[in-house]
Write a protein that binds this DNA or RNA. Structure first.
Lengths: 225, 225
DNA sequence: GAAACGCTTCGGCCCCCGCCGAATGTTCCA
DNA sequence: TGGAACATTCGGCGGGGGCCGAAGCGTTTC
């Protein structure tokens, strides 16, 4: 009757700080070698190797053997969503250190959630698109209108490419810091690509946080009315 | 760095079987006394009490003091949703019983994984096919090239028959012992059939393990270059 | 009151598992 | 053909935490 055993397997994997740090480092959807993940988690390479093995066996990560190294990445967008869901539930936790607070604030402002935009920026863009009738919100999901498709293509979003993907086209992802939905799915990823291409935002190195470029943001605000 | 610490706190709570069983018993939204939850989880009342305290501190449960007892219930629907999300991700994993597979050398060497080749042999064949450009690896999935189709047909693989199936044609299956992908799906099954037909490997009775026939392996190695 | 019930706290046991360093493979580069 | 870079396996250590039984405290019932 219960699905408890299935839950524990996955949750136990996520319950270790080192493993969670590795997963967090992979939340941008990139593939990273084991050594870098060990460094980020602050453990010895041998320790990281064991953790990565378990994460792969638990189907949370996939491994891509390279020439001399092995690169790990999140197994799917589902994993990223799960981590977001966990963050949402745990985000009431207090922040003690000032440095950590700064990082948190940067993440709250703008970040990538796996491969799409999140944080205040991501939610704002999504809501602007809804207000402009580019997106229809339909019981927890998004739908792209005909006019909206034209609009997004003008914005430089590869809508056709997004449609070609097998994954869900446009879905809602509940933002853990804003507690409001932002655009996810293939279209969300395409929008994020456009945002980076057009220079509205830039990636910060070694971080999921995004830097919002003032000029780009102003231009975007203009376009979105 | 991201929100990893927040994730671990919640996930660690869910990662324990006893706690998960208690949460599972509360998934209907009802409030239940500690004693009943202890019984359901199969632990002593004292043990359950500690778990329940931690779950309340972690804001996953709320407690309602009654006259003589204390009733616990899920703190919110978010908790239930999170448990559902975890189950969904956990149940995606193929039944592929890691534990029951044992650690016998025979299984590591060569075996069937459902209906396709796995173990060192399965991975080696797959990687040889990739190296020979028979298969293209495309973000965790395989694609059969035009030249590759000719090659496999020459090898005795019923590619047309595999295409006729409704199931996924060529997919990657992560090898539990090698931790590298091997070919699965309809094409993987057809390849395994060919391997048995041509005598490269033979089934062991009452076992998933395969015996690699030296002559067959040599012949195969010749063909694969 | 005293006994029964429900839950929690405390002390102690033990196993799991996260951690490291050293050794081993594998691949690439002089 | 060595050596360097990268990753993994192995052996062993140590701490955290899950577990129980006994004891403590509040409430209900006789």
């Amino acid at each position: 009757m219960g699905h408890a055993p299935v839950v524990t397997d996955v949750a136990a994997l996520l319950g270790d700080p080192s493993r969670a740090a590795m997963l967090d480092a992979l939340m941008d959807g990139e593939a990273r070698p084991a050594g870098e993940l060990a460094r980020r988690a602050g453990v010895a390479p041998s320790t990281a190797s064991e953790h990565l093995m378990r994460l792969v066996e638990g189907r949370l990560l996939v491994v891509e053997p390279r020439e001399r190294e092995r690169r790990y990445r999140l197994a799917s967008a589902d994993v990223a969503e799960l981590l977001e869901a966990l963050s949402r539930l745990g985000s009431e936790a207090p922040v003690n250190s000032l440095r950590a607070a700064g990082r948190t604030e940067a993440l709250r402002a703008a970040r990538t959630c796996y491969d799409h935009l999140a944080g205040r920026f991501g939610v704002a863009v999504t809501e602007a698109l809804v207000a402009r009738d580019v997106l229809d919100i339909r019981d927890g999901s998004f739908e792209l209108t005909d006019d909206g498709e034209v609009f997004l293509v003008d914005l430089g979003v590869d809508v056709a490419g997004a449609r070609a993907h097998k994954r869900v086209f446009a879905r809602a992802c509940l933002d853990w810091s804003e507690r409001r939905p932002h655009l996810a799915g293939a279209l969300g990823a395409a929008l994020a690509d456009a945002a980076l291409d057009q220079g509205w935002v830039r990636r910060r190195p070694n971080d999921r946080a995004l830097r919002v470029i003032p000029k780009g943001a102003a231009e975007l605000r203009e376009l979105l009315g």
